[in-house]
Amino acid sequence: MPSSNATYAHDVKKIRDLALKALVEDVPFIQFLGVYFERCGDELTGVLPYSEKFIGNPELPAIHGGVTAAFLEVTSLITLSWTIFLREMNLNTNEIDNTSVGGSMRLPKTIDFSVDYLRSGLPVDAYARATISRSGRRYASVQVEAWQDTRHKLFAHGTCHFLMPEQSK
């Protein structure tokens, strides 16, 4: 349903928030981890609230490497999907309505994922931000970094490659 430019402008924020909510809430594993995203304009920051079930080494204690890896991968995937959504939204300005942001969005598929563990994950909240290095028609390369108490002291960073979903007509 075409909408006027004024309505569109008015709804951009709402649509962006709805789209992000739909992206994240549609994935049970993201809910299992409790990961959510804070949005500043088009920039996303993934937040992993600490939970006792994340501990991999009870002696230290430290967060399990599998949690860190999953958090980085989730942040990469959601950031990339979000970027695709924004691009399609800009291309199809006249076709945006609330029904287009539901659970039918096709997600990119992970081809490979590589993570460096730089410090042990402390038993506190963690944050991650992903950068799209390249996003083509078929493949995308995404860099992601994660920190806890101090932004410049990364505890992990990674690179993800994705197979892009078929473009909608």
């Binding site: 549609d26 994935v27 049970p28 594993f29 490497g65 599998g66 949690v67 992970t110």
Partner: peptide, 15 residues
């Protein structure tokens, strides 16, 4: 990881 297919998320595999 994908409710449409029921396939588990890569993050569970990485753990």
């Amino acid at each position: 990881g994908d409710v449409n297919t029921g396939v588990i998320h890569g993050g569970a595999v990485s753990a």
